[in-house]
């Protein structure tokens, strides 16, 4: 198992180098940042000076080396608009995004697994049909509309929960509920169909022949097998959440990474875009690593192939 993790870590590291090169090149290919500083009064010398200040006059390999060296020290450069270190800006927003991401993830995944399994074991019953209806509703209604409706009903009309910003527990309710309503259905359907597949299998029949109580058949024999497929999707959903729920954060004025990246893109703040993208990439890599480890834990076949 240790070897498996070490190999995966090395792979992640190689991927990270590739990603850093890609981000480095793409940002430079997307336009000349000095254009942002140009005023009608700027002379060629001014531009050249800005260029030198930003280090853009150096050859590309050297620029990349500087980028990597700074990165190793946790320095992502300064925001062009805010004139502040990008690292600080991200770190300042990260707790907000993480707390929102984690709570929405837990709420939606727990609900999805619980309801999905219940629906599968009561196939075509009223619960199954109700859950399927809910799932279709959640997938069909766009997130931003649900968010606005939630604000209208619960903040404006009934005034139970705050409409925007961060603060106490009540601030979480609407964003988390909106996100869960949006994230749960896909997962729920995946868990339900994965569970149905497993329940049809011969080893489940075998478990019943052994005289095992139904709860052991479902929660021990079926669940662990049914977990394998939805695990990847759960990892991807979590990675997506870490990068900031762009729409939800914007509707609820939630000061997180999603909102930061929108602000940076709109104001063409290249270092911030670069920093956020890199952070996202690292998060995705780490989560994939985690999913791989979980996989190996759940499915012995994977565990043995890797070692």
């Amino acid at each position: 198992m240790t070897r498996f993790i070490i190999v995966r870590l090395l792979q992640a590291f190689v991927a990270l180098i590739g990603i850093s090169i890609l981000i480095f090149l793409l940002v430079r290919a997307s336009g000349d940042p000095t254009l942002l500083f140009r005023t009608p009064l700027s002379t060629e010398e001014d531009i050249a000076r800005i260029r030198a200040d930003l280090g853009l006059d150096k050859p590309m390999p050297e620029q990349y080396w500087i980028f990597i060296k700074d990165l190793a020290h946790g320095d992502l450069g300064d925001s062009i608009v805010k004139r502040r270190p990008v690292t600080d800006m991200i770190l300042e927003r990260l707790p907000n995004t993480l707390s929102l991401a984690l709570s929405s993830f837990l709420v939606s995944m727990l609900l999805a697994f619980f309801l999905g399994i219940l629906a599968a074991t009561r196939r075509d019953g009223w619960l199954d049909n109700g859950v399927k209806f809910l799932a279709i509703l959640g997938q069909a209604l766009p997130g931003f509309w649900v968010a606005i409706m939630a604000i209208l009903v619960f903040s404006v009309y009934w005034q139970i929960f705050p409409a925007s910003g961060t603060g106490g527990f009540t601030h979480f309710v609407l964003p988390v509920a909106t996100m869960a309503f949006f994230l749960m259905p896909g997962m729920l359907r995946l868990v339900r169909s994965s569970m149905l597949d497993v329940l049809d299998s011969e080893y489940i029949k075998m478990a019943r022949i052994k005289g095992l109580p139904e709860r052991v058949v479902i929660w021990k024999h079926a669940l662990r097998n049914a977990l394998i497929a939805p695990l990847t999707t759960a990892g991807m959903i979590f990675a997506m959440l870490i990068t900031g729920a762009v729409i939800t954060e914007n509707v609820f004025a939630w000061p997180g990474i999603g909102r930061l990246s929108i602000e940076a893109l709109v104001s063409r703040d290249f270092p911030v875009v670069q920093g956020v993208t890199l952070m996202v990439a690292v998060a995705v890599l780490l989560i994939n690593l985690l999913v791989d480890i979980l996989y190996a834990y759940v499915d012995p076949q994977i565990r043995y192939q890797q070692m």
Partner: peptide, 25 residues
Amino acid sequence: MRKYRGRMISMILQDPMTSLNPVYT
């Protein structure tokens, strides 16, 4: 009836490739 299964009556299914649970020893 459940208590009879496995203890009094048992059954062997056709395909050994699918009748064992893959994630338990």
